[in-house]
Structures are given as structure tokens and as C-alpha cells.
Amino acid sequence: MAVVMDADRISRALTRIAHEIVERNRGVDGLALVGVRSRGVPLARRLATALKTITGDDVPTGALDITLYRDDLMRHQVGPQPLVRKTEIPFSIDDATIVLVDDVLYTGRTTRAALDALIDFGRPKVIQLVVLVDRGHRELPVKADYVGKNIPTSRQESVQVRLLELDGTDEVVLDRPEG
């Protein structure tokens, strides 16, 4: 097990991404953040705080649960059935610039589900994707617009993002299977 990002690295990555968002969208006008449950939600909130520091503006932030959009519902025998949680997007996404926030980009299937879910809420002008970690091995044509850190991995490895809000600590660890 190796810590590939500590609290400081995570914080700096999010600050950098916040600047990139402002730069690329020329401010935060018409912009909203949507975190993908579970760990995308605190990340989105942190980005909102960073954006407020940079621009002085409040950026609306929502939470998206993608469980009902997953393509592996009936194949969960390998693990527990995902718990459905509430989606909370208390603003209209029509014609908005939606910045979707997730912790890890891997096969792209979660992002695919998130895009489907999001589009059921309206018709955004544009959707951009933030991930804290891109670990490669894409199975769908998905590319992140903002990446905290690219971490080359093998499929046997697992990447775990731990956040203060949910896990009591800020770190990204890379687990290698034993043997």
C-alpha cells in the first residue's frame, strides 16, 4: 500500500483545478458543480469553496447518485448491492455549465452513468469533468477536462480516495494485491 497523494497534494490539486475552471470558463457565471456520490460530493464542495475564494461568487453545488443508472445492477454478486441515495440538485441545469466531479476515473462507466443521470435533469450547455485521480484503463470514450493526478496502474491494483468528510483523513492510496 502506497500513499500517492497526501492531504497537501490533494489540496493543491483542487486549488489548481479551481483556477483552471475559472480560466477555461472565463469566470463562474452560469456554472454549477455536481459531485458524484459518494466522494465526488465533498470534492465538489471543496471546489466551490476554492472558486468562492478566487472569484468571490457562490457556485451552486449538487449531489448526484448514479446507482439507478449503473449497468452492473444485476451483476453485483461480486459485491454488495449498491445502496441508493438521494440525488440533490437544487437548481436548474438547463443551459448551465455543469462541472461534474468524481474521485477516480477508471473504466469510464461511472461517468457514462453520471452523464445519463444528469441529462435526465435537463439540458446543460456543456458538461465538463473533474477527477482527482485518473488511473487509466478506459472502456468507454471518456476523457476528463481537469485531472488532479494521473496515476498509472495495473488492473489488479486498486485506488482508494479517502476524504476527511467521509473517512476522517485526506489521502489517495494505491493498493497492490498481495503475492
Partner: peptide, 23 residues
């Protein structure tokens, strides 16, 4: 668990598009 899950489902019913692809 059923009641908790129903809370999430209730939110789906409050959307403009009241449909998810789950089943």
C-alpha cells in the same frame, strides 16, 4: 433499508423526467 431506499426513489418522482434506466 426499504424505507431508506424509498426516500431516494421519492426524489426520482419529483424530477421533470421521472424515469431511471435501472430495470
Amino acid at each position: 433499508l426499504i424505507l431508506d431506499t424509498a426516500e431516494a426513489m421519492k426524489e426520482v418522482g419529483q424530477r421533470a423526467i421521472k424515469k431511471v434506466p435501472t430495470l
